[in-house]
């Protein structure tokens, strides 16, 4: 990564962290304040992103929505990636038979499309923020787990570790000095890419009415509300969606700069 892109990446992360943790610093308004007289205002001087059907300011809501959306995305990535690291590492290090079993289980999970798997999980747990996190986490885990497994496998069979064996290094030294540090960097890239995708999936569940319930200012839920008035108030849909695109594309850019490949959902 060049120096400039490093600075840009950190600025990007800092901006969203600030927005998520202290939205009031950026916009003083109340995201839930209703003002029916101001309903369906187009973007303009008073309301840069316009207002919704109850006269709430979209800009304030988009900024305040970052907390919920990003939290669900991060938490879901943590669940999915945690599971993936455990399963992937286990499969890579395990004897063939155990590796085979884990692979089959992963394939079974993988064979149900992510969103369908998330829906399936919610069918059993019922809707809500917690279930959405678990659903998105579980549905993204198999893809990551396979990547983690192949990465550790490649490292395990690398000439680098063979050379360490020839130099007389024990298992612990090889794992500590070579395997873990070299596996971490690509994993970091994977996590970054994963956050972007998880934000999208979490918003999708809210959009379908299965995540954060309205009128909370979550981006997916805002889009769901905006859909009803699509012909009337395009701004209700445009801006929350743009926020998702910016976060997801930014995460992809940073992840790719860290050496990740955007090949998994």
């Amino acid at each position: 990564m060049s120096r400039l892109s490093k600075i840009l990446a950190w600025l990007f992360i800092a901006f969203w962290a600030l927005t998520a943790l202290a939205p009031a610093l950026i916009t003083p308004g109340d995201p839930l304040a209703i003002n029916p007289a101001q309903a369906f205002q187009a973007p303009g001087a008073g309301h840069v992103f316009g207002t919704d059907e109850s006269g709430r300011d979209i800009y304030t809501r988009v900024i305040h929505g970052a907390g919920d959306s990003l939290f669900i995305g991060l938490a879901a990535t943590a669940v999915g990636m945690g599971l993936a690291i455990v399963l992937g590492t286990l499969a890579a290090m395990a004897p063939r038979w155990l590796d085979g079993i884990i692979l089959r289980v992963l394939e079974a999970l993988y064979s149900i499309p992510s969103l369908l798997l998330a829906l399936l999980i919610i069918a059993f747990t019922g809707p809500g923020v917690g279930p959405a996190i678990i659903a998105v986490g579980l549905s993204t885990a198999p893809g990551y787990a396979r990547l983690v497994r192949s990465q550790i496998r490649t490292l395990k069979n690398s000439e680098m570790l063979e050379a360490a064996t020839v130099l007389g290094r024990g298992t612990w030294l090889k794992v500590r000095n070579h395997l873990v540090p070299n596996a971490l960097k690509p994993l970091l890239a994977l996590v970054t890419l994963g956050v972007g995708q998880a934000v999208i999936w979490a918003a999708a569940l809210s959009f379908l009415g299965l995540g954060t319930p309205p009128p909370a200012p979550e981006w997916g839920a805002m889009l769901s509300a905006g859909r009803t008035y699509l012909h009337l108030a395009w701004w209700m849909s445009l801006f929350p969606g743009l926020a998702i695109v910016v976060v997801a594309a930014g995460a992809t850019l940073i992840g790719r700069a860290l050496g990740g490949k955007a090949r998994t959902i």
Partner: peptide, 11 residues
């Protein structure tokens, strides 16, 4: 080895 680079830790 023939290709020494592969036997070095890239970091």
């Amino acid at each position: 080895y023939q290709n020494p680079l592969g036997s070095f830790d890239p970091r």
